[in-house]
Amino acid sequence: MILDAARAAMSRLFSREFRAVFFKTLGLTLLVLAGVWFGFKEVFEYFALPWLDAFFPDLPSWVGWLSFVAAIAAGLGLAVGLALLIGPVTAVIAGLFLDDVAAVVEKEDYPDDPPGKPLPLLPAIAMSLKFFGVVILGNIVALFLLLVPGVNILAFFLVNGYLLGREFFEFAAMRFRPEMEAKALRRRHAGTIFLAGLVIAGFLAVPLLNLLTPLFAAAMMVHLHKMISQKDGETAPR
């Protein structure tokens, strides 16, 4: 069931409809990161660089090089930080377009079933922010667990597998069910959904390809929700 859902999601991943969502997501992500970069740069140059001259006006002229070195170090640090933020920022922006992804999968692969109902704008924004928090939290926890001998990469997969599996499945289910019913369904099939989350975590671990993680995860969980619903005797959940 899980592998079937993953294969079905991959088959749609590079379709024209998915590419359109991906380019919108990537464009907005780069715009946000560029804004963060220039905003930080302006703040740093305005407040940090004059600091040495303001507080130590009588120091030798070579001390001015410290400002140059500090600027380079800050730039490198910001570049690393932005690289780490690409995944989470992509997740929060993609969260605004996940209903588009789900609608494509439902229309193309389940044409005889009633279509799902998109989330209203405010709940959709709240869910995208929740995705952002989940990705940030998962990676922070995994980062700390990397310091524990014998855990390392396993921590990344376990934490992200659980969190991503839970959130993306509930998203797919809530297109057809009230929130409480979606959560109850997820709890009844917690093992299957966790294993599906591990597949998503594996996708997330691949550089560059991980930018497509929200699209892949949403499509995969739409398929998994359909399969679980049919298994439970619901031929067309609504």
Rank of each mutant, 00 (worst) to 15 (best):
M180N: 12
A9I: 07
P60A: 09
M220Y: 09
A48V: 15
N160L: 08
S61G: 12
L185I: 15
I93R: 08
A124N: 10
V151P: 11
I193A: 03
V101C: 03
L52R: 03
A236R: 13
V222I: 03
K130D: 06
V141L: 15
R16C: 02
D58I: 11
K226E: 12
F131H: 05
R187G: 14
F23W: 12
A91D: 04
G150L: 02
D58N: 05
W65A: 01
F131R: 02
L185H: 11
L30R: 08
Q230I: 13
L26G: 06
H189A: 07
L76N: 13
K130H: 13
G233A: 14
R238G: 13
A236C: 05
F216I: 04
L59K: 10
G202R: 01
P111H: 09
D58V: 14
V63K: 00
L59G: 08
M174W: 10
E45D: 15
L147Y: 09
A217Q: 00
T90H: 03
G165P: 06
F44H: 10
P207F: 13
W65P: 00
A182W: 02
A79W: 08
L52M: 10
L30A: 09
I136A: 01
E45H: 12
A142H: 03
L66W: 02
G64A: 06
I140T: 12
Y110E: 09
P118L: 07
E181P: 03
R188Y: 14
V206M: 12
L164K: 05
I86R: 01
L30T: 15
E45I: 02
L28W: 04
I125N: 11
L98P: 11
G202E: 01
L215H: 11
F157T: 11
A79G: 12
V63G: 01
N139D: 14
L84I: 12
L147C: 10
M127R: 11
L119D: 11
A83V: 11
A8K: 13
D53L: 09
E106W: 07
P207W: 05
L208W: 05
V135M: 09
S11M: 06
A173C: 03
L3V: 07
V101N: 03
A48C: 03
F156C: 07
F44E: 14
L154S: 00
W65R: 04
L85W: 04
F56W: 09
P214W: 00
G133C: 11
L146M: 07
A201K: 03
F18C: 02
G191N: 06
W37K: 11
K41C: 00
F68S: 12
L33G: 11
A103G: 00
A190E: 14
P118E: 06
G77C: 15
A71M: 06
T90F: 02
L137F: 13
I86K: 00
L163Q: 00
P207I: 03
A201Q: 05
R186L: 12
L96F: 15
G77S: 12
P60Q: 05
P114Q: 07
